[in-house]
């Protein structure tokens, strides 16, 4: 009877539909990006409307576009690092860490920058998404954010895994 129960549980697990891993994860990243912007204040040169630029992840671009379709904010999928001049919020995906020109985009002080992975975060991003098993958490470079004139809410900082 015990074995039968165990077998039934395993069968139900195997037959159940799999998570649509890519889209669910991309939607979560897009939502986190939006929340980071909400919890951040530009102390100078406050943009009239945000221009989100997504580098290297079309799925995050699609998810964020869908999320912001009823707002006036602009979302662009960057195909080249040179297209980022008007971006106020920049998201770079993990695989761009191997390409030097994308890392240079993190140097702009007026831009809120969110990256995936420790490699890009070390290059000078304000927010870093941390991929964990079953979860996404984030780290904040508070020193850099303040240097760049951003005020980050205490509520968000309490939820950050690491504060640098």
């Amino acid at each position: 009877m015990r074995w039968l129960t165990a077998l039934l549980l395993l069968s139900s697990a195997l037959l159940a539909p799999a998570i649509q891993a890519q889209s669910a994860e991309a939607s979560l990243k897009a939502a986190l990006l939006y929340r980071f912007v909400q919890y951040s204040e530009w102390s100078a040169n406050v943009p009239e409307r945000q221009h989100y630029c997504i580098g290297g992840d079309p799925e995050v671009f699609t998810a964020l576009t869908a999320m912001l379709q009823q707002s006036e904010e602009q979302v662009t999928l960057l195909t080249d690092a040179n297209e980022a001049a008007t971006c106020t919020v920049l998201f770079l995906s993990l695989h761009l860490a191997k390409q030097a020109d994308w890392g240079l985009l993190l140097q702009s002080p007026a831009r809120l920058t969110v990256v995936e992975g420790a490699e890009l975060f070390r290059k000078g991003a304000m927010f870093g998404l941390i991929a964990e098993p079953q979860r996404i958490s984030f780290r904040v470079n508070l020193t850099l954010a303040r240097q760049n004139g951003f005020h980050l809410s205490a509520q968000m900082l309490k939820l950050a895994k690491e504060i640098h």
Binding site: A24, E25, A66
Partner: peptide, 23 residues
């Protein structure tokens, strides 16, 4: 799923951080 939600309906940051993903 959060994929279907518009910005105004998004879960809080705390709830998002509790969302499970298949990374």
């Amino acid at each position: 799923s959060i994929a279907q939600l518009h910005a105004q309906q998004l879960p809080s940051l705390e709830e998002l951080l509790r969302q499970q993903t298949a990374t």
